[in-house]
């Protein structure tokens, strides 16, 4: 009897220590969406259950190993206990009740995180492709950044053009795959102003690791201002402007960088035009109009040193579009 009491007390102590130990190290990123609240609530119950069940099994085992282990000189077998049916039934039924409760709580918190609270929710169309995210806003412009006003319900209608990707902002908690051939929905109400990142959570090819994009949650006023800027940029009808739009819509910047810092998997376009490019076959070539045109339409024809075999797929553009893109690349100095 004394053994049972000691073990019982130890189980409680270890369970509580485990729970507080685990939660104190910071198990989750900040909560930045209304949907994160029911999910974190559920998660907290999971941690409680894990801590308790872990202690419930580990403590008696260790207790037994230390207290009942073979004494010196004893060569006999242990007590002959074959089993105990009421006990077996108890530890079948009680976990059964626990898991059914948990499943119920899980369904409830799922329902909470899927609810559309605002019938006039903002709808943004998301396109995922290897390896970039682009967003089409209700006001008609396209961007590679996701800007959201705080406390406004948003529905992302997501589509993939090539393979499966997955839209995940850890601070929002929720994750949703983006599947070619169908539109999936991501419902979110950001509730904390800040800068986050969307991180593609489904292996989608060589560059999957770098398929991240900025997500900015701002006040309504800041958001409106950003929208106004974007509309202005989009309406400026210069070749560079059109070129920028094209490379945004086609996801080129998912791989190519437009700053001096090259991306991990494709050459930077910064200062590219007119420069010498070292090719994989050892030769060099000047990056002129013809070369860039060929690089876009048939990337495998001339591969840049260090990037062969290329992961870039051929694109089809009209001559005017290519001219716009080149104009844009030229502007990167």
């Amino acid at each position: 009897m004394i053994h049972f009491v000691t073990v019982g007390i130890l189980v409680m102590v270890v369970a509580i220590l485990t729970y507080f130990g685990a939660t104190s190290v910071g198990l989750m990123p900040v909560q930045a969406s209304a949907q994160a609240v029911p999910i974190d609530w559920m998660w907290n119950w999971q941690v409680i259950a894990i801590s308790f069940l872990f202690a419930l099994i580990v403590v008696p085992i260790f207790y037994s190993i230390f207290v009942f282990r073979r004494k010196k000189g004893d060569t006999s077998d242990a007590e002959h206990i074959e089993g105990n049916t009421p006990l077996e039934i108890a530890w079948t039924v009680i976990p059964l009740i626990i898991v059914v409760t948990f499943a119920y709580m899980g369904a409830y918190s799922l329902g909470e995180s899927r609810r559309i609270t605002d019938p006039e929710a903002m709808i943004v169309k998301v396109t995922a492709r290897q390896f970039s995210w682009t967003y089409e806003y209700p006001d008609g412009f396209v961007s590679t950044e996701l800007h959201l006003p705080v406390w406004k319900q948003v529905i992302l209608k997501m589509e993939a053009v090539d393979v499966i990707h997955s839209f995940w902002v850890p601070e929002f908690r929720v994750k949703q795959d983006v599947v070619p051939g169908r539109v999936t929905e991501y419902r979110i109400t950001p509730n904390l102003v800040g800068s986050y990142k969307v991180r593609c959570a489904e292996l989608c090819g060589s560059n999957h690791a770098f398929m991240e994009g900025p997500v900015v949650v701002s006040t309504q006023a800041d958001y409106d201002q950003w929208v106004a800027e974007q509309i202005e940029i989009a309406s400026a009808n210069t070749p560079e402007g059109r070129g920028k739009k094209l490379i945004t819509e086609n996801g080129c910047v998912g791989c190519h960088s437009v700053t001096a810092q090259p991306g991990p998997s494709a050459p930077s376009w910064f200062n590219l035009f007119g420069e010498e490019v070292h090719l994989a076959d050892g030769s060099t070539i000047t990056a002129d109009e013809a070369y860039i045109t060929e690089s876009v339409l048939d990337p495998a024809a001339k591969e840049v040193e260090g990037y062969a075999p290329t992961i870039m797929k051929p694109f089809t553009f009209t001559q005017e579009q290519i001219a716009d893109i080149i104009a844009y690349i030229k502007s990167l100095k």
């Binding site: 999910i39 899980g106 995180s113 994750k175």
Partner: peptide
């Protein structure tokens, strides 16, 4: 035991939305 106990959070849809992958 530790592996098994980390299963139910994945099995619970709402938490798996965060934990998946």
């Amino acid at each position: 035991l530790l592996g098994g106990l980390t299963g139910p959070p994945n099995a619970t849809v709402s938490t798996d939305l965060h934990l998946h992958d």
